[in-house]
Design a protein around this nucleic acid. Structure first.
Lengths: 342, 342
DNA sequence: GTTAGCACTCAACCAATGGGAGTGCTAATC
DNA sequence: GATTAGCACTCCCATTGGTTGAGTGCTAAC
């Protein structure tokens, strides 16, 4: 069977209507509120076809139809219009620049949640390919060395390295110079085995320590453990009956607290991400099982070269995709505005 | 009217029963399941008295009684027994020592939530009176100085201080020595105006910078902004019908996400805290309005001198207080075990 | 002071009911 | 051949009314 223009129009009308009302939409509604001038009976026939093709679903006999995941997907891919947002009054998406990036991002999530009425999440930025600005080793006590690492984004990481025997001041100074002269200006990806071997040689008797530091440094940058995910507006899920029965709500809340699954989605989306950086997961498309009834829209933000993270929205499949996408786009611009002119 | 022993016994029976079943308890139940050997009619009379005195409440005519906040309070204060926990199988409260304190604490919250089936929260430790181990200033670039500060608990804080003109290496070294010799070993409370003035004098032309650093240091320690609150087991609230209707659940979820209100409670509890460090808030006793239907049990943990935080449980007023208190106590011991033998 | 007995209240459950929205099918119409 | 009117049918859902059971307060007897 073919998906001719009329079917498309009807499908679009069904989806639009369902997004608005949240109720299964019947043939008569379509017949009345479109400019197709077809009787409900005709619509019914077409709807039966659309159902057979898998674009819509009948929750039960004698109910209207609702879009299936496949239907939503078609809509999102081909039928969605680029809604130009009325930037006026409605949204004051003013992000205040704060001393910490984290604060701005939390703010962004909040704005997003409030403005869309869905749940929002945002990851702290990750530093891929970001260069090392400098490394500072300091002696904490006899057995502990503090390694502080500043990357180009002025992100600071620190790690305590244990040593077996105390190091004197002179040695510390030498190691500091050694590390900085070899590593400053390079990005973590570029630290390879040859480099490490060379470093170790230069360190002489303290090669073990250097190895430890290099490990710690690599670990400090690469490690995901401090990729924090903040959420905002979780309670918005209660606005959507299809998500707020006990079981489902409980699952979602857990999801938001555990964060692991969210992080999975983030990873996924960053891997796939197309040129706009916007990614949409509908129901079972998400790599997380408990999200069957949700849709997720993610976008990758970029603060500066190599420093990026993800911001996203989670809501019911019956989501105002147009609005969400345009809102999220606008927010990205806002973030750019804040950080690009540095 | 007086609260004689019989009334107390009846009240206790009512509360015990209600904690177990969650259903309003009637006179016949009490008559049958206590060793008082009184008929239901007598119990009814007593119950009427208890209600008049404000210890119990009748949700509606022809229902049994449930404890009021006042009733719970009496129970918690005078009738609760120190339940000795069967430490065996039931709970494997094994906390794995991890590299970061935060991890252990998150783990603790999780254990607490799982074991009690309520929601748990934990704050990252705060450093009151903790001594400064050392300070390290490093040059990030011409206008930025990185100040790293290590306290006795091996907690590391850092702050970037902006300077108007570049400092040469020698100056940096001098400042480092100056700061460390004056501040290392002192606790933040002890940094007073006289000390700062002296420091400034010694710094000579760089007094502004020193002031900036001292400010930053003080700020870095005192500031609350990085007192993180982690939660775990939020979804447990769905196990208690009295908390899980949409409105209430929504409010609680929000509470847990905003964290501000939680932090208010924490502050409160730390201010009041008695010798055991355990604090119980029943319903309206909590300083947060949206917690009317909850009870909160908090405890102050102490990792080492001056380094402490709060761990707590949030659940329905119908909470198994005995169990919660004993579980939380046990967890505190476990934390002690982990950190005291350092 | 205690208890048995009784009338009363109220929530909760259940079954029956009827309306409404929507469908699929068929036969007539364009 | 596509479209439409008509109709029987299905299923959800809200309403109703009746019943049950747990519990109470009160009174009178023990």
């Amino acid at each position: 069977m073919e998906l001719d223009e009329r079917k498309l129009k009807i499908l679009q009308a069904i989806i639009r209507n369902y997004l608005e009302t949240g109720e299964p939409v019947g043939s008569r509604t379509i017949s009345k509120y479109t400019d197709l001038n077809l009787s409900s009976a005709t619509i019914r026939n077409e709807m039966a076809d659309l159902e057979e093709m898998g674009y819509i679903i009948q929750p039960h006999t004698s109910a209207g139809r609702i879009p299936s995941d496949k239907g939503y997907r078609l809509y999102v891919d081909t039928m969605m219009e680029d809604k130009v947002r009325e930037v006026d009054a409605k949204m004051e998406m003013v992000l205040q620049k704060a001393d910490k990036v984290e604060k701005v991002l939390k703010q962004a999530a909040k704005v997003l949640a409030t403005s869309t009425q869905y749940a929002a999440m945002v990851t702290s930025p990750r530093y891929k390919g970001s260069k090392i600005k400098f490394i500072q080793l300091s002696r904490v006590d006899d057995k502990q060395i503090l390694a502080v690492l500043v990357t180009e984004g002025n992100t600071i990481k620190n790690r305590i390295v244990h040593v077996d025997e105390p190091l004197d001041e002179e040695m510390m100074l030498k190691l500091n110079i050694l590390l900085n002269s070899s590593l400053a200006g390079t990005s973590v990806q570029d630290i390879n085995l040859a480099m490490i071997t060379k470093l170790k040689q230069q360190a002489g008797i303290h090669s073990d320590l250097v190895a430890g530091v290099v490990d710690a440094v690599a670990d400090a940058i690469v490690t995901d453990e401090d990729v924090e995910i903040y959420t905002s507006g979780t309670q918005n899920i209660f606005k959507y009956p299809e998500l707020s029965d006990h079981e489902r709500a409980s699952e979602i809340i857990n999801l938001f607290e555990e964060k692991q699954p969210l992080s999975d989605i983030v990873r996924e989306s960053e891997a796939v991400g197309d040129e706009t950086g916007i990614q949409i997961y509908i129901g079972s498309e998400a790599p997380v099982e408990t999200m069957q009834d949700c849709s997720v829209v993610t976008a990758t933000y970029k603060l500066e070269e190599g420093v990026k993270g993800t911001i996203g929205i989670i809501g019911p499949k019956r989501m105002d995709y147009e609005n969400v996408v345009s809102t999220i786009k606008q927010l990205m611009q806002e973030l750019d505005r804040l950080y690009k002119k540095d």
